Amino acid sequence: MVTSSNKTKQNYGPDPVSVRATDQYRAEYVHAFVQKWDSLIDWDARIESEGSFFIDKLRERGTRQVLDVATGTGFHSVRLLEAGFEVVSADGSAEMLARAFSNARSRGHLLRTVQADWRWLNRDVHQKFDAIICLGNSFTHLFSENDRRKALAEFYAALRHNGILVLDQRNYDALLDHGFSSKHIYYYCGNDVSVKPVHVDDGLARFEYRFSDNDVYHLNMFPLRNSYTTRLMREVGFQRIETFGDFQETRRENDPDFFVHIAEKAYVRSEGDL
């Protein structure tokens, strides 16, 4: 049963920076925060900043069926549906899925939704996909390396033999090494909210989301370094990984706000293979 208090208030206990657990995300996305999430994203501004990047990359690889494992309020699921892809929309938060379903209905679409924990994804999702997308800096909700490896292995198993994983993350390298700086034009495009870190160390990036009505929420996330993420992908079995910075082919390491990794499952033959 959901009470009014846990629909509106996040609970991190007396020492918020000590809360470093994967399962915390369920308590972070309270109803009141989820209802404000679309003003953080600003769908129209996000479409303009991102363009057709993800649609183009999926089409280049002949993708037809897509699993959106971090659906959130439905932005990418709806965009891909409108571009002609078959989409299944998953999320660990029931609040997010409910909002996504409502957003899609208001735009004339019916989402196929499933609530699923990535660590046991194939227990709840029973088909193979051409592509899995894990966007919105969502992978950083996993706080242990075992959880990250388990989730990536589940993604790998849910893909067809030539499938791809598209995963993004904030540029935590720059945050950890040089401090916070954001152009605030690619991912969080809304003008109704300010986003900034209030604590950063090697094991935690705690972000504050302050809205114009003075409502304040927080997210505790693990600061993934770029090279660490791609190493885990390779160790799980992904063969070729291409990384983009803010939807660009070329980048300097500290320039992008976000990295986008496209990891291919297809086996890459070496010269020594028969």
Rank of each mutant, 00 (worst) to 15 (best):
residue 3 T to S: 15
residue 10 Q to K: 05
residue 12 Y to M: 12
residue 13 G to V: 02
residue 14 P to M: 01
residue 16 P to Y: 04
residue 18 S to R: 09
residue 20 R to D: 04
residue 21 A to E: 12
residue 21 A to V: 11
residue 23 D to G: 02
residue 26 R to P: 00
residue 27 A to P: 01
residue 31 H to R: 13
residue 31 H to Y: 09
residue 37 W to Q: 12
residue 39 S to T: 13
residue 43 W to Q: 06
residue 47 I to S: 12
residue 47 I to Q: 05
residue 50 E to K: 07
residue 51 G to N: 14
residue 68 D to T: 09
residue 82 E to C: 06
residue 83 A to I: 12
residue 85 F to L: 11
residue 92 G to K: 08
residue 93 S to T: 14
residue 93 S to V: 13
residue 95 E to Y: 07
residue 99 R to P: 00
residue 101 F to H: 11
residue 101 F to L: 07
residue 108 G to P: 07
residue 109 H to P: 09
residue 112 R to Q: 14
residue 112 R to I: 05
residue 113 T to C: 13
residue 115 Q to L: 10
residue 116 A to M: 09
residue 117 D to Q: 06
residue 119 R to I: 04
residue 126 H to E: 03
residue 132 I to G: 04
residue 134 C to N: 15
residue 142 L to A: 09
residue 143 F to M: 14
residue 151 A to Y: 05
residue 152 L to C: 11
residue 154 E to P: 00
residue 155 F to L: 01
residue 155 F to G: 05
residue 156 Y to W: 08
residue 158 A to M: 08
residue 160 R to G: 13
residue 166 V to L: 10
residue 168 D to M: 00
residue 203 G to E: 11
residue 205 A to C: 15
residue 206 R to W: 04
residue 210 R to M: 04
residue 211 F to A: 08
residue 214 N to F: 13
residue 223 P to W: 03
residue 231 R to I: 03
residue 231 R to P: 00
residue 232 L to A: 00
residue 233 M to F: 02
residue 235 E to L: 11
residue 240 R to H: 12
residue 243 T to I: 15
residue 251 R to S: 13
residue 251 R to N: 03
residue 251 R to Y: 15
residue 264 E to D: 07
residue 265 K to E: 02
residue 274 L to Q: 01
